[in-house]
């Protein structure tokens, strides 16, 4: 191979490598992020490490560098963040500017996190979400323990108001249940907050018939929270002993689901004349869903049949007597 050709090939390879690298970098920051956030580039100061599975530390004095894995608890998914309820935020809206120093100083790691009420409480613009009522329910909840905060369930970097805007109920239920399972199906996380023995969710719900169907069709909180009058999603998690275990709490005309999962939708009129008809878009709950019209019609047909039989019997008896 002649020198000019070799030089050209090396140049082409280098150019291709650069292009690939550039295209990889640009893939991480999507144009859609800029549509919802004015601080995308500023946030990259944090996300260049916290938005990656691994990060690079360089020592300028020795010139050495090392690549480490980012702890999953400290990793932020860009897509999830820029589509979450806090998508317009800059990292430093909530976190100290001191985090801009690397390695992060020890003191800032102990910074007090904002809680929901710190921003959303007693504010007319958030009144519809009833954050104050949520806080009151949480105070009565079994989750009200040391080190437990809103963020244990609602990651502020990815939280979506899924249930409120649910178009796909199945997806919303999955999203909601994963919040619980994040700790209740991950013992190492669970032990951060309690000394209780490990819970096996599948085993502890063995009594539940069609377990998979139940897990897919309802949220954990349907049975594990006290019904709330004011808020969309109840937050008073009850002790295990008080969890709903009676089937007819849901499988009956006065189904509990109408006060929990279908609470807001149930304010709509009956769908197609069916009792608790709103459930029937995605599911069907035996005992809770029925059509009063079909019930009445079947009673009429049944009564007509029995009357016909009674009349025929009467004719037979009369005929026998006149024989």
């Amino acid at each position: 191979m002649t020198k000019p050709i070799r030089f050209f090939l090396i140049l082409l390879l280098a150019a291709t490598s650069t292009l690939i690298a550039q295209s990889d970098d640009s893939l991480k920051i999507k144009s859609s992020y800029f549509e919802v956030n004015d601080f995308v580039e500023d946030n990259e100061a944090c996300l260049k490490c916290h938005g990656e599975e691994k990060y690079l530390i360089e020592d300028p004095n020795s010139g050495r560098s090392i690549t480490n894995h980012m702890c999953p608890d400290r990793t932020i998914d860009r897509d999830a963040f820029y589509s979450s309820v806090h998508k317009a935020f800059s990292c430093t809206d909530c976190h100290s500017y001191d985090f801009m120093t690397f390695p992060h100083p020890l003191e800032v790691r102990f910074e007090e996190h904002f809680m929901c009420l710190d921003c959303h409480g007693y504010d007319e613009s958030f009144a519809q979400y009833h954050f104050e009522d949520i806080e009151m329910e949480f105070q009565k909840s079994i989750h009200n323990m040391e080190d437990f905060s809103c963020w244990k369930c609602h990651d502020p970097h990815s939280y979506k108001a899924f249930m409120r805007n649910a178009e796909d109920l199945t997806e919303a239920i999955l999203y909601d249940n994963n919040m619980c399972l994040k700790c209740h199906a991950n013992f190492s996380r669970f032990t951060l907050l309690t000394d209780r023995e490990e819970i096996n969710v599948v085993k502890s719900h063995e009594w539940l018939p069609n377990q998979t169907a139940h897990f897919k069709s309802v949220r954990c909180i349907e049975c594990h929270t006290a019904i709330s009058d004011s808020i969309l999603i109840p937050h008073q998690i009850m002790p295990k002993a008080d969890a709903v275990k009676r089937c007819t709490e849901c499988h009956s005309r006065d189904s509990r689901l109408m006060h929990t999962l279908y609470k807001f939708q149930s304010k709509e009129e009956r769908k197609g004349g069916f009792v608790n008809g709103v459930i029937m878009t995605d599911y069907f709950v035996i005992g809770a869903n029925k059509s009063p019209f079909l019930d009445k019609l079947s009673f009429l047909i049944l009564a007509g049949t029995l009357l016909g039989i009674a009349f025929h019997t009467f004719l037979r008896i009369r005929n026998k007597k006149t024989k």
């Binding site: 018939p209 009676r246 089937c247 007819t248 709490e249 499988h251 009956s252 005309r253 006065d254 035996i286 005992g287 029925k290």
Partner: peptide, 19 residues
């Protein structure tokens, strides 16, 4: 029994009726 299940006491327990 399943169709007319109630939260009160019926003729048969719901789970027994299902099984």
């Amino acid at each position: 029994a399943l169709h007319y299940a109630t939260t009160g006491t019926g003729l048969i327990k719901f789970e027994t009726a299902v099984n």
